[in-house]
Design a protein around this nucleic acid. Structure first.
Length: 317
RNA sequence: CGCGGGAUAGAGCAGUCCGGUAGCUCGUCAGGCUCAUAACCUGAAGGUCAUAGGUUCAAAUCCUAUUCCCGCAA
């Protein structure tokens, strides 16, 4: 692709998801700055951790801005004199002062088929709800969250076997591709954009700690969707004997035990723990016990007696 | 120095309290049985017991320090 160094692009984003976009922008345009969330204290020792986008920008020698509140600290962004601003999973609402500045506007790459799943966790919420497809929306930004006019959309299927990681990788690649294909038409003004139908809007709030907990009173398929929507990060969890067990994979088995309580481990399979829920049984196959590494139940049974789990009940303490 | 758990063969674990030949289950490889197999039988390979010191005739095990991993909290 030809380098279009006449166009000054400013990029705003934070997680791994949008790094491919930044890399492609750097390859084809004049990226005059990158805005990302401030370094966060993360992990056990409260070490400052830079966002993936920041690391990518530094590697490419691009100026990085990390305002704590861009609503107030927007002047530096304007000082870069961008012709267009591209955002993707940045994590803060962009103030009007910035939105009005670039002559080609502010473009957002969002990981859902808008107006569905507006908000911070569109991929997770889509999988969690058992959606069969999702996609990428390229849109103009306005002052509200994910409400601006739509420029372009592309769909991808969500397979029954997909987890968050798979969907994330698909959409990350698709977002990069779709943006790079669409950007020329945005710059020369040959694209159309259409308003969203707000009556069809749904919301995808960020995942809270409580959202990560598994409710065994739900149907097996719902629990399966919940587990894969959070796998491998942050991981759905349940408690057993007062300790946290993270669950990364499972499958539905169409067995029904009337005498079992919801959440009770009623059967030990070769590859997992059979747990009763509202309708069928869900077999948990891939876990991480507190203090241990993630491992398949199949492997866990090599060194531990699976029968010790029989009759135990999840979330009972 | 926020709190707690952990590190032993490719994987999952036992052995550590009470120091004395490195074990189990699975996987891998070779052979056998079988119409056949993810089943069964026989055999083999595979370990500086996280790292560095210390105590001891002798350390996976006891003492000290360090590194890395995991859960919580932020």
């Amino acid at each position: 692709m030809k380098k279009n160094s006449d166009v000054k692009v400013l990029f705003m984003g934070t997680p791994e998801f949008c790094v491919p976009i930044l890399e492609s922008l750097i390859a084809s345009y004049d990226v005059v700055g990158v805005v990302t969330q401030p370094d966060k204290e993360i992990g056990r020792h409260k070490e400052l951790k830079a966002s993936p986008v920041k690391e990518c920008a530094i590697k490419n020698g691009i100026l990085v801005l990390q305002p704590a509140k861009i609503r107030k600290d927007y002047q530096e962004v304007l000082n870069r004199k961008p012709d267009i601003i591209i955002t993707c999973a940045y994590g803060q609402i962009i103030p009007k002062e910035i939105l009005d500045y670039p002559k080609y506007g502010c473009i957002n790459v969002h990981a859902s088929l808008l107006p569905k799943y507006r908000g911070g966790a569109p991929m997770q919420r889509a999988i969690m709800n058992g959606e069969k497809e999702t996609g990428i929306t390229i849109m103009y930004m306005d002052e509200h969250m994910d409400t601006g006019n739509i420029i372009k959309m592309a769909k991808v299927p969500i397979l029954d076997s997909d987890n968050l990681e798979k969907v994330h990788d698909k959409l990350s690649a698709l977002g990069e591709k779709l943006l790079m294909e669409t950007l020329p038409s945005i710059l020369d003004g040959t694209n159309d954009s259409i308003a969203q139908d707000d009556s069809k809007a749904t919301f995808a709030p960020v995942i809270s700690r409580e959202d990560e907990k598994i409710d065994f009173n739900k149907k097996a398929k719902e629990i399966y969707d919940h587990i894969r929507a959070l796998s491998p990060f942050p991981g759905a969890y349940a408690t057993l004997d007062g300790k946290i067990v993270k669950i990364y994979n499972a499958y539905v088995k169409e067995e029904f035990y009337t005498e079992k309580e919801n959440g009770e481990i009623g059967k030990i399979y070769k590859d997992g723990l059979g747990v009763s829920c509202k309708d069928y049984e869900i077999v948990i196959t891939d876990v991480k016990f507190e203090g241990k590494k993630r491992c398949l139940m199949k492997d866990y049974f090599n060194g531990n007696d699976g029968n010790k789990f029989l009759g135990k009940i999840f979330n009972k303490d």
